[in-house]
Nucleic acid binder design. Structure first.
Lengths: 156, 156
DNA sequence: CCTCTAAGGTCAATCTAGTTGACGTTAGAA
DNA sequence: TTCTAACGTCAACTAGATTGACCTTAGAGG
């Protein structure tokens, strides 16, 4: 275990001098991602899972009977990269895959009950962080946050 | 170059069904990070550099004459992990290291002019994304965003 | 029936970014 | 002079990705 594990990589929300007025915002984005995902990652780690597994579970939960090809597209990774984590989830029976009667070519992925439980809990940790933050600033603040993030996320 | 490069990994701001009201916020966090860093990463890639190099440049720019040990602490990585990117930056003369007259034990890191130029430009791309988003929602919206992110970032 | 093709599976090699552990060097402090 | 802090580096490992090559399965079209 790394010396800094309890604070997570590089995270004393640094005491760095600011060169620009937007430096603080820049750093908030960095620390914000870690802050949102830390608990979820810790939970997943207790199951021997990590981000990639969670992403798969998250997508399949919201798109039941998704095909492998579509999953690859949504996740934006190669099938070789998907292979490992996907097979682990199948072995662990968090996911099932079966070919449909008609479209026998493509496989349909679904969460098992256990898979749903894990996905719920992992995503739940992340939602809780967001909910707490939104609660503290009220609905208008939350809406403003969404608006800002929407514009930022559109830079693709 | 990956087939999805122009959209960056998994980024059609997915058409996923929502299971929870906070799912949209969750996804905004994910896409937001990519949206903020995409241009900067593309620029860095043209120089053969990436995130870790940028993080080093960013910190040294804001903490001139920082020692290697302190840099390791701030970044939260091992000295072995720092070694490679740091040496590259020194070879490329984006960074200088010299021992101070008194504290001859520790090395002091500084950006060269070229290093400053690169750091400015890379961070500048990220700041522009933020500035554009803040401009679109006005000062109160920006303040709300900072407040929300502050609370989220505190989850460590 | 046969061939073409879409969907999926898998193997190998490579890259990046990190980790531990072990050990070596440099140079100030006791 | 020896002890130690700060730095440097080597090796082995892991996780998460990439590309390229090749194979199987099974529906579709001639």
């Amino acid at each position: 275990m790394p010396k800094t594990a309890s604070r997570a990589a590089g995270l004393h929300r640094a005491s760095l001098g600011k060169l620009h007025d937007l430096d603080a915002a820049l750093e908030l984005m960095y620390y914000g991602w870690r802050g949102m995902t830390l608990l979820a990652d810790q939970y997943l780690a207790t199951l021997g899972l990590s981000r990639p597994h969670h992403r798969i579970l998250y997508v399949v939960a919201r798109q039941p009977d998704i095909s492998i090809g579509s999953l690859i597209e949504v996740l934006g990774i190669s099938k070789q990269a998907l292979n490992r984590p996907l097979n682990l989830l199948l072995e662990r029976k968090l996911l099932t895959s079966k070919r449909s009667p008609e479209q026998h070519r493509s496989k349909l992925l679904r969460l098992t009950q256990e898979g749903q439980r894990v996905e719920q809990r992992a995503s739940g940790y992340e939602r809780k962080v967001l909910r707490d933050a939104f609660d503290r600033v009220g609905q208008p603040g939350a809406a403003a946050w969404m608006a800002v993030m929407g514009v930022i996320a559109d830079n693709n």
